[in-house]
Nucleic acid binder design. Structure first.
Length: 110
DNA sequence: AACTTGACGGTCA
DNA sequence: ATGACCGCCAAGT
């Protein structure tokens, strides 16, 4: 069911540790590439409707770019949240992306 | 019912 | 390194 897919996405996003980030593709792959990365992004679209808080700001594209910042309350809320967690951002892009990257496949596969 | 859009990602020119 | 294209599939028009 697509609903389960969405639920799994939210679950993984909530598992992202403080100060860490991941990518849409990483989540999609962790879920078995059943769907495409676009579906992860689409799932995030409804993340704000979830009862439990979903740190969607910790999910960016493989480029480390804050492509979804426009979906937040303000224009730069996403960036502020990330910077508040020690993430360095410049021009809507995460500089220390590799350092802060949290891959569910690597961290949760076992 | 058909076409377009999109919080993506990978490949090819 | 930059830009165009394709695959992926749900939701909107």
């Amino acid at each position: 069911m697509s609903e389960d897919f969405f639920k799994n996405v939210y679950e993984i996003v909530r598992l992202i540790p403080y100060g860490r980030i991941t990518s849409y593709g990483a989540i999609a792959r962790y879920l078995g590439t059943a769907k495409s990365s676009r579906m992860v992004g689409w799932a995030m679209n409804g993340s704000h409707t979830q009862a439990e808080y979903v740190p969607a700001h910790r999910v960016v594209n493989r480029n480390g770019m804050l492509t979804g910042k426009h979906f937040f309350s303000g224009e730069n809320i996403m960036q502020e949240l990330l910077e508040n967690e020690g993430i360095v951002i410049e021009d809507d892009k995460i500089l220390n992306f590799q350092e802060r990257f949290w891959d569910p496949i690597k961290e949760l596969e076992l």
